[in-house]
């Protein structure tokens, strides 16, 4: 086998043009996933009727099926739904005007939401009950208690697990190539096929993912240090 080391560099440079796509997919799915996950976790923890059952079903289904299925189901199912509603209501909007990456965003947000709801739930459960009682005793409402006391502490506890989820979504974003969204993995495939140098292209892609992952770990480590400042003992 002939390895062309210099092509790894060439391929790597060309992968950079697909980097924004990968980052966008990861960022949107993580951000939306955190919002969905928090809402779902709260619905379940506060036993809100109907919503809590729906949430439990959503988490069970999404965690019970592969991420690729979510993407394919959204990609093939959503247009049918949208076009059906659109024509029934007499709108001119059709699913064809949705960019491909839109399907990826929706599908992976759904994926991330289910996984993150468990992370958030664990974080909230780790907050000492005395903290809630103290907040209630000074007259804070449930919403104020959540926003000012529970969620900040839950977030700092959940950071290691959240950074795991971010890494999972970054790596999972490679699945977007199946519906022809050109992210890093798809770009590697294109460069590889053009030059007939598959191994080199994928080495470059692997290195790029690794670097991104290290970056995420660093950021999360720094955030953890910042957010957990209060847990460190000793004098200031």
């Amino acid at each position: 086998m002939n390895l062309d080391p210099s092509f790894i560099w060439t391929a790597g440079l060309s992968l950079l043009q697909a980097l924004p796509e990968t980052l966008w997919i990861t960022f949107v799915s993580v951000a939306a996933g955190l919002v969905i996950g928090t809402a779902v976790a709260l619905c379940r923890m506060y036993h809100i009727p109907v919503l809590s059952q729906l949430s439990a079903g959503y988490v069970a289904f999404v965690r019970g099926t592969p991420m690729l299925m979510h993407l394919l189901l959204i990609y093939f199912g959503l247009p049918v739904l949208i076009d059906g509603i659109s024509s029934a209501m007499g709108w001119s909007f059709t699913s064809a005007s949705i960019p491909l990456i839109g399907f990826v965003w929706i599908a992976f947000s759904i994926t991330a939401g289910a996984y993150m709801s468990e992370v958030v739930r664990a974080g909230i459960q780790a907050v000492d009950k005395g903290q809630v009682e103290a907040a209630q005793s000074i007259g804070m409402t449930t919403i104020q208690t959540l926003r000012r006391i529970i969620l900040p502490q839950a977030l700092s506890v959940s950071l290691p697990n959240l950074s795991n989820s971010v890494i999972g979504m970054l790596h999972g974003s490679t699945l977007a190539y199946t519906i022809s969204v050109v992210e890093i993995n798809a770009q590697a495939q294109i460069v590889a096929a053009d030059n007939w140098k598959y191994f080199e292209a994928y080495i470059a892609a692997a290195i790029l993912f690794w670097v991104l992952t290290i970056l995420i770990e660093r950021i999360s480590g720094w955030l953890e240090y910042r957010l957990n400042a209060y847990q460190r003992g000793g004098a200031l």
């Binding site: 000492d128 009682e133 103290a134 907040a135 005793s137 900040p152």
Partner: peptide, 11 residues
């Protein structure tokens, strides 16, 4: 209220 376990907001 003043609690047995203090319950100060840790953060």
């Amino acid at each position: 209220m003043v609690f047995q376990q203090y319950n100060l907001f840790k953060h």
